[in-house]
Amino acid sequence: MPQENYIKGCSMQRPLLLEPNGFFFWKSRFKTFVKSKDIDLWQVIQNGDFYFEVKDEEMKLMKETPYELLKDNEKKQLGKNEEAKMTIYNALPCKEYERVFICKTTKEVWHTLIITHQGNSQVTNCKIDLLTQEYKKFSISNEQTINSGFTRFNAILTSLKSLDPGYSSKNHVRKFLRALPLK
């Protein structure tokens, strides 16, 4: 496969597979992948399925529009619902698929994955607090290589950014340099 179409297990046709303990990395890459393919798919994942309804004058209720009465562009939008679900399914290993296959909509699937791997807002806030403490206390021991220290530091920053999109600190480089052992 040509290099430009294949980067570390992620082709341009298929999203990166969710790996155990790699949710934050996967979530960011998956979101970018979907948006780059079709922004409507991301809207379905975030906001729920496209749905068309008509008013039943007889019963004075709203009901789903029969497929035969839909316009071509509405039929295409309904197709986005299944395309979005298939995109997520293609990025999940069997164990994760079994967890979400009973969900009716793609939004439910996404929400289930978020709650399972990130937790609710209380859990997220606790994780942010723990990561912030880890960031503040970060240091590299004399026995540790700069590479392994940087990998650990970067994992903390990536996790923080994933949990708190508003998180920013302009002093990451200084923080890392101060953590280096004096040799």
Rank of each mutant, 00 (worst) to 15 (best):
Ile156Thr: 02
Met59Leu: 08
Lys8Ala: 10
Ile88His: 01
Lys35Trp: 05
Leu177Ile: 13
Lys127Ala: 02
Thr151Cys: 10
His117Lys: 12
Lys127Gly: 00
Trp42Met: 10
Ile128Ser: 00
Ala84His: 02
Cys103Trp: 08
Tyr135His: 01
Tyr67Gln: 15
Phe176Ser: 08
Leu180Met: 13
Phe101Arg: 10
Thr65Arg: 15
Asn120Trp: 10
Gln118Met: 13
Gln133Lys: 07
Lys27Pro: 00
Phe176Lys: 14
Lys75Cys: 00
Ile128Asp: 03
Lys31Val: 06
Thr145Trp: 08
Pro15Ser: 05
Ile128His: 02
Ser139Asn: 15
Ala155Trp: 11
Ile39Val: 12
Cys94Ile: 14
Met62Arg: 07
Met12Phe: 01
Pro20Asn: 11
Asp72Val: 13
Ile88Tyr: 02
Leu61Glu: 13
Leu18Trp: 04
Ser162Phe: 07
Gln77Phe: 01
Trp26Pro: 06
Gly79Gln: 08
Lys85Glu: 05
Asn154Thr: 04
Lys170Val: 05
Gln144Asn: 04
Asn147Ser: 10
Ile45Arg: 02
Leu163Ser: 01
Phe176Asp: 08
Ile115Cys: 00
Tyr6Lys: 09
Val123Arg: 10
Glu108Asn: 03
Glu53Tyr: 03
Lys71Val: 02
Glu74Cys: 03
Gln3Cys: 06
Glu57Cys: 00
Cys103His: 07
Pro181Leu: 09
Ile7Arg: 04
Ile39Phe: 10
Lys8Ile: 10
Gly9Glu: 08
Val123Gln: 11
Arg152Asn: 07
Gln46Asn: 11
Asp56Pro: 05
Lys107His: 03
Val54Pro: 02
Gly119Leu: 15
Leu70Val: 14
Met1Val: 11
Tyr51Thr: 12
Gln118Ile: 10
Gln43Lys: 15
Phe153Glu: 06
Ser159Arg: 15
Trp26Ala: 05
Tyr135Phe: 08
Lys161Leu: 10
Leu131Arg: 07
Trp26Val: 03
Leu160Asp: 04
Phe24Thr: 09
Thr106Ala: 14
Gln13Ile: 09
Thr132Gln: 07
Ile114Ala: 08
Tyr135Val: 02
Lys31Thr: 08
Arg152Val: 00
Gly166Pro: 01
Leu17Ser: 12
Asn142Pro: 01
Lys35His: 04
Asn90Glu: 12
Lys63Met: 13
Gln46Pro: 02
Phe25Tyr: 02
Ser139Thr: 14
Arg174Ile: 10
Arg152Ile: 01
Lys107Asn: 10
Lys107Leu: 04
Leu78Met: 05
Glu53Ser: 15
Thr151Glu: 14
Lys60Asn: 15
Ser148Ile: 08
Ser148Arg: 12
Asp56Ala: 07
Lys37Phe: 04
Glu83Met: 06
Glu19Lys: 06
Ile7Asn: 04
Val123Met: 11
Lys37Pro: 09
Asn5Ile: 11
Lys95His: 05
Phe176Asn: 12
Asp49Lys: 07
Tyr167Arg: 12
Asn5Asp: 03
Arg14Ile: 09
His117Ser: 12
Met1Gly: 09
Phe176Leu: 11
Leu41Val: 04
Gly166Leu: 14
Lys60Leu: 08
Gly79Tyr: 00
Glu68Lys: 14
Leu16Trp: 02
Lys183Thr: 14
Thr132Asp: 04
Lys75Pro: 02
